[in-house]
């Protein structure tokens, strides 16, 4: 494809990214570095601040879960309650990623079954990549950037909750050294979504063709946007391998949670995605 077409594709995906993802990397980094001009970010660093911070959290829950949880003692319920608000946010994020996927030129022309498969397998990878800009070595922004939750606090939760975020921190700290910006991220997310090797795809060829075009656009974007960063394109593609392992481990942890936590009920949309996944 012509360079001009690739630049137009990059612009289009960047615009879609800005339209569907409310917390950009630029905004998140401004909050994390204290450059937003206000001190509104609430810090959760222990159980007390978690209780205080819950009013900030997106706490839309399935009523039956609320009923179950309120019957428990507060110390046992706090992880589950927090986990449920994470699930609500994740379900909302899946909706945002779906809208972004639909904006990729050619995506909605694919077989509908294949669109479902691409999202089923791609969406958790996309969500994990999108966590990276929200994280630094000490913690992560949550709740659309209103809250900073410390890494130490997440590590202090009871097992297996304490094991959920640590691999994402390790990945994100390394990923952030690549210093991608939002316009690079938009193309990278599209590349992840358009993976032609997802299990059960019916018609791989058009997916690979779409991905190849976006890969060209990403390669050109990185050359122009990061002229001094050698091998950035290759390094970024390497991250896709690490990402698959993180998702596999994440799914296994969720399966473990489902077995061990009697009151744990997975959000219906997340259930659909997790079922028979790896």
């Amino acid at each position: 494809p012509e360079a001009a077409d690739l630049r137009a594709l990059a612009r289009h995906l960047y615009e879609a990214y800005l339209k569907y993802f409310p917390l950009t990397k630029a905004k998140a980094r401004a909050i994390l570095s204290g450059k937003t001009g206000d001190n509104a970010t609430f810090v959760i660093h222990d159980m007390k601040s978690l209780m205080e911070g819950e009013q900030f959290l997106n706490c839309r829950q399935i009523p039956i879960q609320e009923h179950h949880i309120s019957g428990q003692g507060p110390t046992n319920a706090v992880e589950l309650r927090f986990f449920h608000s994470c699930q609500s946010r994740s379900a909302e994020a899946v909706r945002e990623v779906t809208e972004f996927a639909k904006s990729i030129p050619g995506f909605t022309d694919l077989d509908l079954n294949d669109q479902v498969t691409l999202l089923k397998y791609g969406v958790i990878e996309v969500l994990i990549i999108m966590m990276a800009p929200l994280m630094n070595k000490d913690g992560t922004l949550i709740s659309y950037g209103q809250i900073f939750m410390t890494r130490e606090f997440l590590k202090s939760l009871r097992k297996p909750f304490c094991q959920m975020m640590e691999p994402k921190f390790e990945f994100s700290v390394k990923f952030n050294t690549l210093e991608l910006d939002d316009s690079d991220m938009a193309l990278f997310l599209a590349v992840i979504i358009l993976s032609g090797d997802r299990p059960g795809l019916l018609n791989v060829k058009p997916i690979e063709q779409l991905q190849e075009t976006v890969l060209h656009a990403l390669e050109l974007q990185l050359k122009l946007n990061h002229p001094d960063s050698l091998q950035l394109f290759a390094k970024l593609l390497q991250k896709m391998t690490d990402l698959r392992q993180i998702v596999t481990d994440h799914v296994h942890l969720l399966q473990l949670l489902k077995k061990t936590e009697v009151d744990m009920c997975l959000h219906p949309l997340l259930q659909e995605i997790m079922k028979d996944l790896y």
Partner: peptide, 21 residues
């Protein structure tokens, strides 16, 4: 596949508002 993934399918077919989730 579509049958097993009704919500994903719905999200793909329509613009679903946050309230619907």
């Amino acid at each position: 596949l579509k049958e097993k993934h009704k919500i994903l399918h719905q999200l793909l077919q329509n613009s679903t508002s946050p309230v619907d989730l």
